[in-house]
Amino acid sequence: MSTVLEKMGRTVEEAISRALDELKVERSQVDVEVLDEGNKGIFGLIGTKTARVRVTLKETPGERVKKFLDEVFEKMNLNVQMVVEEDDKAVYVKIEGEDSGIIIGRRGETLEALQFLSCLVVNNGKGDYKKVIIDIENYRKRREDTLVKLSHKLAERVIKSKKNITLEPMSPYERRIIHSTLQNNKYVKTYSIGDEPNRKVVISLK
């Protein structure tokens, strides 16, 4: 729900600042519609008219994401709970519930899609770019642990067999986890081949 407020003042600026004081928000958090420009008149005496503005409190990116996802999950008939937090850079969504598995999808495919769409929804109406990060039942952390373990294991195998290993296609985020895990390994190096969305990490001997 958006809050709407109408204020008057001698000038448009004064009317706006009165509204901002009352709402206790910054100028960037509202939309302003000038209803009446006002007029200082001649010598401030003849023909003075007060300025009138309508100030609408903008939805924050977090609120927009929550509204979007709430509606999507409702239409999907999913039973989940959601907590949304936000700071200057990003919106963080945490999801829990019995239907989490459906939202994660095969190798996190659905989770990525929802995150991508939410990001578009937030950054639709210009303004500063905000990242959206969705996590479900700690999936991201668990996946990261799995990838770290996997890269160590595969590095061992490359060293023993002296043959390259190509991993399955992964998202940029997941590839980065593998690159950084093996970055300081003395015996192997990593690089990526192929084009998105089929880009894969290769582990090879140095």
Binding site: V72, K75, M76, N77, L78, I102, I103, G105, E109, T110, E112, A113, L114, F116, L117, L120, E196
Partner: peptide, 24 residues
């Protein structure tokens, strides 16, 4: 363009979510 996206990325994401809903 807003429903297809660069290299069909948006269309793909929409289809992925729809597919997940169809599972149920």
């Amino acid at each position: 363009g807003k429903v297809i996206g660069k290299q069909g990325r948006i269309a793909k994401a929409i289809r992925t979510v729809m597919k997940a809903a169809a599972v149920k």
